[in-house]
Amino acid sequence: HHHHHGSGALAALHAEGPLAGLPVTRSDARVLIFNEWEERKKSDPWLRLDMSDKAIFRRYPHLR
Rank of each mutant, 00 (worst) to 15 (best):
H1L: 14
H2V: 14
H2Q: 10
H2Y: 14
H3T: 12
H3Q: 09
H4L: 11
H4V: 10
H5R: 14
H5W: 15
G6D: 11
G6E: 13
S7T: 14
S7M: 14
S7I: 14
S7C: 13
G8V: 08
G8F: 10
G8W: 07
G8T: 12
G8D: 10
G8E: 10
G8M: 10
A9L: 13
A9Q: 13
A9P: 11
L10P: 14
L10W: 06
L10E: 14
L10F: 10
L10T: 15
L10M: 12
L10R: 13
A11L: 06
A11C: 05
A11H: 05
A12Y: 10
L13V: 13
H14I: 08
H14R: 02
H14M: 03
A15Y: 09
A15M: 14
E16V: 11
G17R: 01
G17M: 02
G17A: 03
G17E: 04
P18T: 06
P18N: 07
P18R: 06
L19S: 06
L19Q: 05
L19G: 02
A20V: 12
A20D: 04
A20W: 07
G21Y: 04
G21D: 05
L22F: 05
L22P: 01
P23D: 00
P23G: 00
P23T: 00
V24R: 11
V24A: 04
V24H: 04
V24T: 04
V24F: 05
V24I: 12
T25V: 02
R26M: 15
R26A: 13
R26L: 15
S27E: 14
D28K: 01
A29V: 01
R30F: 05
R30Q: 06
R30N: 04
R30M: 13
V31A: 09
V31T: 09
V31G: 03
V31I: 15
V31W: 12
L32I: 13
L32S: 02
I33Y: 02
I33S: 01
I33C: 03
I33V: 06
N35C: 11
N35G: 07
N35A: 14
E36C: 05
E36G: 03
E36W: 06
W37C: 01
W37F: 08
W37R: 01
W37N: 01
E38G: 07
E38Q: 15
E39V: 11
E39Y: 08
E39G: 06
R40L: 14
R40N: 12
K41I: 13
K41V: 14
K41C: 08
K42L: 10
K42R: 10
K42H: 08
K42I: 09
S43W: 10
S43V: 14
S43G: 10
P45S: 07
P45C: 06
P45H: 07
P45Y: 06
P45K: 08
W46F: 13
L47M: 09
R48K: 14
R48N: 07
R48V: 14
L49D: 01
L49S: 01
D50E: 07
M51T: 08
M51W: 09
S52H: 02
S52C: 04
S52V: 01
S52K: 06
S52F: 01
D53A: 07
D53T: 08
D53R: 09
K54I: 10
K54F: 09
A55Q: 08
A55H: 11
I56L: 08
I56N: 02
F57Y: 12
F57M: 10
F57A: 07
F57H: 07
F57E: 09
R58A: 13
R58N: 13
R58P: 01
R58S: 11
R59I: 10
R59L: 09
P61D: 02
P61L: 02
H62V: 00
H62W: 02
H62L: 01
H62F: 03
L63N: 00
R64A: 11
